[in-house]
Design a protein around this nucleic acid. Structure first.
Length: 683
DNA sequence: AACTGTGGCGCAGTGC
DNA sequence: GCACTGCGCCACAGTT
């Protein structure tokens, strides 16, 4: 055809009719602009007796005292309950329409009428709290008939009858969304952490329980949360992402925001197979399982199969490092090797010798696998079409932003597409698919390392899909990329250039410094979430020192300066010149505390102390504690400076810096030509 | 019975 | 999804 997609089809030659068919579908459904639908973001406040207490939505025994909306038509509305203990003066709040009620029943009725005006209702945790509370309050306490509310109560979620309810909490809690769409910029799925990390805003801090606030403060607090929810949806494009995922995986947005990625991919593959009926039928899980078993041994026991390869790093400091990586390695492997549950270990004798390297599994030559076609086409459209549009300067910033959302959404789905085949609960669970994909990945990386070395380039490190090259020439880089394209049929790309890299002897740990002084830290203890603020600050200072280093000679001073900073911190510890709160380790409870039976980790010990004091602790809570002399861990709120076990913190400080300093020592020894005393030889 | 050293393992947090 | 690190618990062996 001569339409706007013809150029794409010219560039990307479809490998099979099936592949072509999918390319077509992606282009058409994802180029269509999203419709503009009126939305309302909502937050409610319930009177509660104390600050930390959260009322049970199924009991709903406290009154709803404020409901706020921020809407796409620009309206900001607050529904307020007037109570005798607070007064009957309706406050003025700038930019907010305030509707006040003496009767809670009337308030609920007005709120319900308001909700119905907007086809999309957005909340943060509305399934478990806001909507459920309103529902139980209205039906159980005020005798509303179910039809008199706009809600539909389901076992584990809340819907709205006239439109859709999007709960952003489970969406942002999705690890794939966190990792790939928002690049790990937030760590906790709380409104406050999301707002801080992504919007540079905060929740309003309260001094008093909700029930004791004056009306104006109450509205401001509630409206702020509704506003943050609205901004997550619109400014951070969560809603756009959601609707695009919905299109790709052929699943309603209400469902997409509440389910994990394995459900999305199941729906996508099922829909694709239905479309191809009668050439394809959806297989029974048992049938997929019969395809074959695992033949590689995982590195970590209790895992199913072997995963990515990590090269032993060359410890020390290295200048002029170029990092190359494979563009979407696993999806590309699936595409190039025709890996799918319907092609791996096929029955044809002609295909027996088409082996996946490092495994006894063979792949079909006669038919295109469904997974390979779906994932391969999605990858091609992302790389060759939407990524290009997202960078196309001839388009408006709005258009570019839209196409960027599209390519980001595709990335989320692509990156998860391989792992699900190793998930027992996945209905298309097929170990050889996962195992085979990882095996080709290892093959590609090891061959690339060998090729680089044969070209005379030293490979300093590599992890799964990347190689760190020491001082390669432009020709060598080019040669390697061409070789990969030719021999592996995989796209190797220039990822980044570092002025220098600090490689500790540890895998998955490094510091990379760009030419402009930007520092990138991976894996090192100093940046881990649980580290006390006291140590994190020292760590950041050390990184600032490294950021200024320009030549190998500079390391002598840099190393001495870092040693100085660390010794200074050490001294402060010894003299107990610190705020105890800065020494708190913050660790998440992975499960409810009763489930810790085999061991009692320190944060669990602290959590048990809190529980004995009547504090509720649940799975997912962050426990802040300090290490003390007697009895180990103690909750931060109970700890006094004199309880602190200084030796333990000194050790933690040393352990944080040891890998870095050891790497720097290698460099400094090279520059000065001799050995020198390390920080830790003093202690 | 109390102490010390060691190795395995559970757990959290990270990288890709 | 697997690979890797650090920390601390815990069981066990050997010693006092």
């Amino acid at each position: 055809s001569t339409d706007r997609f013809s150029d794409f089809f010219y560039r990307v030659r479809a490998e099979s009719p099936l592949h072509h068919q999918f390319l077509n579908r992606w282009l058409r459904t994802l180029s269509e602009p999203l419709p503009e639908i009126p939305i309302a973001a909502m937050d409610i406040e319930v009177r509660c007796p104390s600050v930390g207490h959260i009322p049970d939505p199924r009991e709903a025994d406290e009154p709803v005292i404020c409901v706020c909306f921020v809407c796409s038509d620009g309206r900001k509305c607050a529904f307020l309950l007037l109570r005798s203990e607070v007064g009957d003066q309706v406050p003025e709040v700038a930019g907010v329409e305030v509707f006040a009620y003496r009767d809670e029943r009337e308030l609920l009725k007005a709120v319900f009428e308001f909700i119905i005006k907007y086809p999309v209702l957005v909340t943060f945790n509305g399934d478990d709290f806001d909507l459920r509370y309103l529902w139980h309050r209205a039906v159980d306490r005020f005798g509303f008939r179910r039809e008199e509310t706009p809600f539909e109560a389901h076992h584990d979620w809340m819907g709205v009858r006239h439109g859709i309810h999007i709960d952003l909490y489970p969406f942002f809690d999705n690890r794939s969304i966190q990792n790939y769409a928002y690049e790990q910029r937030y760590r906790e799925t709380t409104l406050d952490d999301l707002a801080q990390a992504l919007l540079n805003k905060r929740k309003i801090e309260l001094e008093k329980p909700i029930g004791e606030l004056d009306y104006k403060t109450l509205i401001e607090y509630c409206m702020n949360d509704a506003q943050l929810t609205y901004e997550l949806a619109i400014k951070l494009r969560a809603l756009e992402l959601l609707f695009l995922i919905s299109r790709i995986v052929i699943t309603p947005p209400e469902n997409v925001c509440r389910t994990g990625i394995s459900i999305w991919i199941k729906n996508l593959l099922y829909a694709s197979m239905r479309r191809l009926h009668p050439r394809y039928l959806i297989p029974h899980p048992e049938e997929v399982r019969k395809r074959g078993t695992i033949t590689t041994r995982p590195v970590i026991k209790d895992k199913l199969y072997r995963g990515g390869f990590v090269k032993e790093p060359v410890p020390g400091v290295h200048f002029d490092v170029v990092v190359l990586d494979f563009a979407s390695l696993y999806p590309s492997v699936i595409s190039v090797w025709n890996i799918s549950f319907d092609t791996v270990l096929c029955p044809h004798s002609e295909c027996r010798d088409n082996l996946i390297p490092g495994t006894p599994h063979h792949v079909c030559r006669k038919r295109t696998g469904i997974v390979s076609a779906v994932i391969g086409s999605l990858k091609d459209v992302r790389v060759e079409y939407f990524k290009k549009l997202a960078k196309d300067k001839r388009l408006s910033p709005e258009e570019r932003a839209f196409y960027n959302s599209v390519q980001l959404t595709m990335k989320v789905i692509l990156n998860a597409s391989y792992g699900v085949f190793g998930l027992r609960a996945f209905p298309l669970f097929c170990p050889p698919v996962a195992e085979g994909t990882a095996a080709v990945g290892r093959y590609a990386l090891t061959k690339t390392i060998e090729k680089a070395e044969s070209l005379g380039v030293r490979v300093l490190y590599g992890d799964t899909d990347s190689v760190f090259l020491h001082r390669p020439t432009e020709e060598q880089i080019h040669e390697l990329i061409k070789w990969s394209e030719r021999e592996l049929k995989l796209k190797l790309e220039l990822d980044k250039r570092y002025r220098y890299v600090v490689l500790p002897a540890l895998k998955k740990n490094y510091i990379g410094v760009y030419d402009d002084g930007t520092v990138e830290v991976k894996g090192l203890a100093g940046k881990k979430r649980h580290m006390p603020a006291f140590i994190k600050r020292v760590f950041v200072e050390a990184l600032e020192t490294l950021s200024k280093v320009k030549t190998p000679e500079d390391f002598v001073d840099a190393r001495n300066h870092i040693i100085h900073i660390v010794s200074e911190a050490h001294r402060k510890l010894r003299r107990r010149e610190f705020d105890v709160r800065d020494l708190a380790l913050v660790v998440k409870l992975g499960k409810d505390i009763s489930e810790y039976r085999k061991t009692t980790p320190q944060h669990v010990k602290a959590a048990r102390m809190l529980e004995r004091l009547g504090r509720k602790v649940r799975r997912g809570d962050l426990i802040a504690f300090v290490k003390t002399r007697r009895g180990g861990a103690m909750p931060i709120d109970l700890a006094r400076p004199e309880d602190v076990d200084i030796d333990k913190y000194a050790e933690l400080l040393e352990n944080t810096f040891r890998p870095i300093l050891a790497a720097l020592d290698l460099e400094v020894a090279e520059v000065t030509g001799g050995k020198m005393r390390s920080l830790f030889e003093f202690s």
